[in-house]
């Protein structure tokens, strides 16, 4: 549905993005992750045909963003980073206007507005002036205009920024609900958000893609080891020794002491690709201790993100992967 091929954008002499290449399939939800100034918004502006790329090709629904920009724009719903609302209009008028310039018929606009108002839970503010709305509700109006004309492709630039935690959860659910019907690109620098909303993550840093993968895969790909956390009630030294003896275990570390003297959380690193949980459980039980919890730990997205975007030690393993 969306294809970028070697897209580069210069602002003057400054390359905002260089050689960005990736594809998004129809119906897929892709997260765009990167620190400030990474080039997320720039890429989105190119996809939505707002600015042309300096070089490279970008197509949406088969149309080139430069040569067939009007066709591209017919397929897109876009929420820019600063929510673009006319403050002197009511929510209803604003949505009606957006519908009109997207070429919707009067009847379709009249039918769709109540639907998006409900989807975005804006009922109380139907007739309010946009200037009177709080930030979170403005954001929702922004999302409402984005989905109003039922576009194939949704491009949301930091849709949850500036929203309070409760509303963030709601907004994320809303966005997740949109996936499936729509092809979705969401940018953010909030990591949990990506794993919640998206099936695939594109990590971008200093204008270049550093990784493309499923959130889960990124963790294992990077680490080279699997990690298991285990809570055991039993004498610390003996437990540690026993755990170390299990075949495949590389290291055992006492992490926390949840309660009491002999009740500890251990972190165990094992060979990559192995699942030693049954053997570990068996060992603990054989020793006659209480196994309270046993959990396989992925690497958190924060860690991945830091690893990928810290320039000193960029692991060779993270060379840009194409579509998996």
């Amino acid at each position: 549905m969306i294809e970028l091929d070697g897209v580069t954008k210069f602002f003057g002499n400054y390359p905002a993005i260089t050689d960005i290449t990736f594809r998004v399939e129809k119906g897929e939800a892709v997260g765009f992750l990167g620190p400030n100034g990474a080039g997320k918004s720039t890429t989105m502006k190119i996809i939505t045909a707002f600015i042309p790329p300096t070089s490279g090709n970008c197509t949406v629904a088969g149309y080139n963003v430069v040569t067939h920009s009007l066709d591209v724009r017919r397929h897109i719903g876009y929420l820019p980073e600063t929510v673009p609302l006319y403050t002197d209009m009511s929510v209803k008028d604003y949505l009606a206007f957006m519908g009109k310039i997207r070429g919707m018929s009067q009847q379709r606009i009249r039918a769709r507005i109540p639907e998006v108002i409900e989807t975005c839970r804006l009922q109380e503010y139907y007739n309010s002036y946009v200037s009177k709305l709080s930030k979170g509700f403005r954001q929702r109006v922004g999302i409402a205009q984005c989905i109003l004309h039922e576009p194939d492709v949704l491009v949301l630039d930091e849709p949850t920024i500036g929203i309070d935690p409760i509303q963030v959860v709601e907004t994320r659910n809303l966005i997740r609900g949109l996936g499936g019907d729509h092809t979705l690109i969401v940018s953010t620098h909030i990591l949990p958000e990506v794993s919640m909303i998206c099936e695939r993550v594109v990590i971008i840093h200093e204008g270049q893609i550093v990784a493309v993968d499923k959130p889960e895969n990124l963790a294992t790909r990077l680490r080279g080891v699997e990690r298991v956390e285990i809570d055991v009630r039993g004498p610390t030294k003996e437990v540690m020794a026993t755990l170390k003896d299990v075949e495949g275990v590389q290291a055992v570390e006492r992490k926390r002491t949840p309660a009491g003297e002999d009740f500890n959380t251990y972190e165990i690193e094992t060979v990559r690709g192995s699942d030693l949980r049954p053997q570990l459980a068996a060992a603990v039980v054989k020793g006659g201790w209480n196994l309270v919890r046993l959990q396989s730990m992925g690497m958190s997205l924060e860690e991945i993100f830091l690893r990928l975007t810290t320039t000193e030690d960029q692991p060779a393993a993270v060379a840009p992967a194409t579509t998996t």
Binding site: K45, R73, Y78, T82, V83, P84
Partner: peptide, 14 residues
Amino acid sequence: KLGTLELLLTSPVR
């Protein structure tokens, strides 16, 4: 100023 130009220019409007 409002950023709405970005929205207008990404709508199918010449």
